[in-house]
């Protein structure tokens, strides 16, 4: 077996095809696909300030790495990184360390905010008190801070490391939970509705699988051997992830089909929910679906 393009030693067999690629052809393929996604969905416009939400894991550092390359070429575009320290003992400190090292080495300004300082509770402490699913609290607080801080930093777009697997999982989870309205807010670019409360979010790795991202990160030395989040096994996401991976081995292209059929119906979902007015939280003024945003609800419960 040799690289399908240059006949040298392959490092990966691409998902959903008979194509195998060597290191150099895979890196070209990967970067080209990210650039195409950015172009097709107008993710970056010259002159903008782009913030990348980084955790220090492979997905966010890959996103930061490629966007930094593009920004260097464009010159007028600026890039910065935002990290959230949730306060997960023995996990987040290590990944944040990666983010700090990468940003230091590449001259990227990194802004770090913590649950403890912003909400008064680390995630570890919050779940002891609230007895809720850790991923629910973490997701709400993290999205809240990323949006709020991106606004404070006056950025135009917030880029995240969500990959094809993450998105396919979210789509299936929303079906399982009967949350179609939440799915209407998924897609490669979200928050298109021009709203002063929302920073538009872009996902440059949208069409790349988790395995492809890991392969790229490994070849570029962006991955460190990290532990999985200790709370990951407690989530519905983890069960859906395993289910989709098992399906994909048995029926290749399952994940692509989930994404592509979702993108087909996404305009219809957006149309259906377009009149649902966005509200603003009466306590913090951030966007909310009710009178109080979910983050302030949790903060209230913690008091």
């Amino acid at each position: 077996m040799v690289c399908s393009r240059c006949k040298t030693r392959p490092v990966i067999k691409l998902p959903n095809s008979a194509v195998s690629l060597c290191k150099s052809c895979f890196i070209k393929y990967f970067e080209k696909k990210v650039r195409r996604t950015i172009r097709e969905y107008n993710m970056i416009t010259k002159g903008e300030v782009i913030a990348v939400g980084v955790s220090g894991g492979k997905d966010s550092l890959t996103t930061l790495h490629i966007l930094n390359q593009i920004v260097k070429q464009q010159r007028t575009t600026k890039i910065l990184a935002i990290a959230i320290n949730e306060g997960i003992h023995g996990y987040r400190d290590k990944t944040l360390d990666n983010a700090v090292k990468y940003c230091d080495k590449n001259g990227i300004k990194l802004h770090i905010y913590s649950f403890e300082e912003e909400f008064g509770y680390s995630l570890d402490k919050a779940i002891k008190k609230l007895k809720l699913n850790p991923c629910s609290i973490c997701g709400v607080f993290r999205r809240y801070l990323l949006n709020q801080k991106a606004k404070e930093l006056k950025v135009d777009k917030l880029a995240t490391g969500h990959n094809l697997d993450d998105e396919a999982q979210s789509i299936i989870m929303n079906f399982f939970k009967n949350s179609t309205e939440t799915s209407a807010r998924l897609g490669p670019v979200t928050g298109i509705k021009l709203d002063k409360g929302f920073i538009q979010r872009v996902k440059p790795l949208y069409f790349l699988t988790e395995k492809e991202v890991m392969t790229y990160a490994f070849l570029k030395g962006l991955n460190e051997e990290l532990n999985e989040c200790p709370y990951a096994t407690e989530s519905l996401r983890n069960d859906v992830k395993e289910m989709l991976n098992e399906f994909n081995i048995k029926y290749p292209a399952t994940k692509y089909s989930v994404i592509n059929s979702f993108l087909d119906i996404l305009p219809l979902l957006k149309e259906k929910y377009k009149n649902n007015k966005l509200k603003y939280c009466k306590y913090c003024g951030e966007p909310a679906s009710n009178e109080t945003c979910q983050a302030c609800e949790y903060v209230g419960m913690l008091k």
Binding site: M1, P10, V11, I12, K13, K211, M214, F218, I249
Partner: peptide
């Protein structure tokens, strides 16, 4: 499950057909 792993031999990435 091959979807969940990359394979490394002597520090180099390899495919399942190696």
């Amino acid at each position: 499950n091959l979807e969940e792993f990359i394979i490394v031999k002597n520090g180099e990435l390899i495919t399942e057909n190696t």
